[in-house]
Design a protein around this nucleic acid. Structure first.
Length: 524
RNA sequence: GGGCCGUUAGCUCAGCCGGUAGAGCAGCAGACUCUUAAUCUGCGGGUCGAAGGUUCGAUCCCUUCACGGCUCACCA
């Protein structure tokens, strides 16, 4: 306890224990409205909570990690990239769980996005307990909390008015009603009997009705009241939020006041996390063309551990960019280095070492592996995977004498490498090794001479050389050709991959193997 | 107008419950007959945005200011 906290997740875990006292179970919460693909920026909140949850558990605490799908929110606008636009527009103002999936796959519009994320999170070792707010409201679970809000209407009004430019109207109620006839929230609350009954009328369809809040499935608290009510209901101890919520007058700020004044419950421990940006794929998470950078997009390029590493290694309150450009290579290198430090294979300062080790632990899906995984640099995999034209299994089989776990690890990384090559790598990185069916490129006399020399002098030695000795053979051969080495290599690359340059040749030849090289040069 | 965050080597950033600063890249020098930020080795005195204050001592705490960014004040 008195030891200095090296990592922010441990710091907040400790803060929660300190401020909330000794509890049987600590509740950590996160959540979002599933009104579109949950993007990588939203993911920052989830992973932030998960890291703190893990830190708490490692301190021997029981933790309930809840993730709230705010799927009783209103369908406010049709995103620009959605199908069946016109039909979708007819569902505006209804709860998003009552809006259909435009492509007909899932039971509702909200469910599409919920499922998308729920299927991905376990890959990262994140397994919260999901709470579906539409179900909670529809089953009147919150009736007590709603009544309390109605009772404290003036208190709430006062709190909200503190920061509003125009005060809430006199007939305002802290409740929104979905019309039982047309399902839209275009309603006006008319009366509350002081107990459980409310009266509303609908501006869309003219329906007017009395509802018992203990029985109806059609009422909901507005967001700024809903949030503190749920803090009380679930007894939330910790929930971070973005800076939009954290400003004075923002929803976290008013929620804090409301939970105290109305629900007589202390607000959760929190922190503010900053936004993410994207490097190498437009600057914004959600580009104007409508495609957002989702967790799936990031998983295509980064192994789950590396994604965790990215977030665990960055303070939550600083902005940072997820990169899809050349930085990807660097980030994998950094991760591997962190791993070597964890396993004691690389030395740095004592303090930094402890920190790196903690980051490594938090980056793992589960427990850290017992011994260091077989590390293959991402850059090297980019070459291997191209030699085998995306055949990841062939790449994996190229590694001899490794166990299944290691194969899985390399396989996962090789897939990322292949995706990166295809989606983001600059052209200089890309190549395609010629096969026996490819037409030979046009070459001149010198070229033919070089290639025949190469075939005679180099190919035979492929099986018996290592990187260094083959390198020597190559340069000996180059000298023998009488050309400048640069020109010599150029001819070889042209024949092999149709480009002037390519991956470092010796290593490249070895990785490709004698057979593939022979096939590539068959017609010369 | 309010709030939050940032301002540290050319660049990107780390360091922050106080003890006169570090890492990567770039750069420079050297090595490898080497192509894909090639690799290896060596080299880091920068008023830690400005001015005050607290302290034996501040990049790290307090105050004020400047610049930059984000955000709230409509909804979630």
């Amino acid at each position: 306890m008195e030891e200095k906290q090296l990592h922010w997740a441990d710091y907040y875990a400790e803060k929660i224990i300190r401020e909330k006292g000794d509890k049987e179970v600590y509740v950590c919460a996160s959540g979002i409205t599933p009104s579109g693909t949950v993007h990588i920026g939203n993911f920052r909140e989830i992973i932030s909570v998960e890291l703190v949850v893990r830190a708490l558990r490692q301190k021997g605490k029981k933790v309930r990690f809840i993730y709230s799908w705010d799927d009783y929110d209103v369908f406010r606008r049709v995103p620009s990239n959605i199908k069946n636009r016109q039909i979708m527009e007819t569902y505006l103002r209804k709860p998003i769980t009552s809006v259909p999936d435009p492509e007909g796959r899932e039971e509702s519009y909200a469910r599409v996005y919920e499922k998308e994320l729920e299927e991905l999170l376990p890959l990262l070792g994140i397994e919260p307990e999901y709470i579906y707010q539409a179900n909670m409201y529809k089953s009147s679970t919150y009736a007590g909390g709603i009544k309390k809000a109605l009772e404290k209407r003036e208190t709430i009004r006062k709190i909200l008015n503190e920061h509003r430019t125009s005060p809430l109207p006199h007939d305002w109620w802290p409740l929104s009603v979905f019309c039982t006839s047309c399902q839209r929230d275009t309603t006006k609350m008319l009366n509350w009997d002081g107990e459980w009954e409310i009266t509303y009328s609908c501006n869309s369809c003219g329906n007017r009705q009395n509802l018992d809040i203990r029985k109806t499935s059609s009422v909901k608290l507005p967001w700024r009241v809903d949030w503190p009510m749920r803090w009380d209901f679930e007894d939330v101890d910790f929930e971070p939020a973005g800076k939009d919520h954290h400003s004075e007058g923002g929803s976290f700020d008013t929620a804090k006041k409301i939970v105290t004044a109305v629900y007589e419950h202390s607000p959760p421990v929190t922190f503010q996390y900053d936004f993410l940006s994207i490097k190498g794929r437009g600057g914004k998470i959600s580009s104007s063309t409508g495609d957002v950078v989702s967790l799936k997009d990031v998983l295509a390029i980064y192994q789950p551990q590396v994604i965790r590493y990215l977030f665990a290694g960055t303070r939550p309150n600083t902005e940072f960019a997820i990169s899809f450009d050349l930085d990807v290579l660097k980030i994998y290198e950094d991760y591997d280095r962190c791993e070597r430090i964890y396993f004691g294979l690389e030395k740095i300062g004592e303090k930094r070492e402890a920190k790196e080790k903690r980051i490594y632990e938090l980056s793992q899906i589960g427990e850290p592996p017992g011994r260091i995984p077989y590390q293959v640099p991402f850059r090297h995999l980019c070459n291997l995977v191209q030699i085998h034209v995306g055949d990841v299994e062939a790449v994996v089989e190229g590694f001899k004498g490794i166990v299944d776990d290691e194969k899985d690890y390399i396989r996962a990384r090789a897939r990322c490498a292949w995706n990166w090559i295809n989606l983001y790598a600059p052209d200089e990185f890309k190549f395609l090794l010629k096969g026996e069916d490819d037409k030979p490129i046009e070459t001149d006399d010198t070229g033919r001479k070089v290639l025949s020399l190469f075939k005679n002098e180099v190919i035979e030695k492929l099986d018996s050389c290592d990187d260094q000795s083959l390198s020597k053979v190559l340069f000996d051969t180059a000298r023998k050709s009488g050309l400048k080495t640069g020109d010599f290599f150029k001819y070889i690359y042209q024949a092999l991959i149709g480009k002037d340059r390519g991956p470092r040749l010796a290593n490249f030849l070895l990785a490709a193997g004698k057979e593939k090289i022979e096939k590539a040069l068959k017609h010369y």
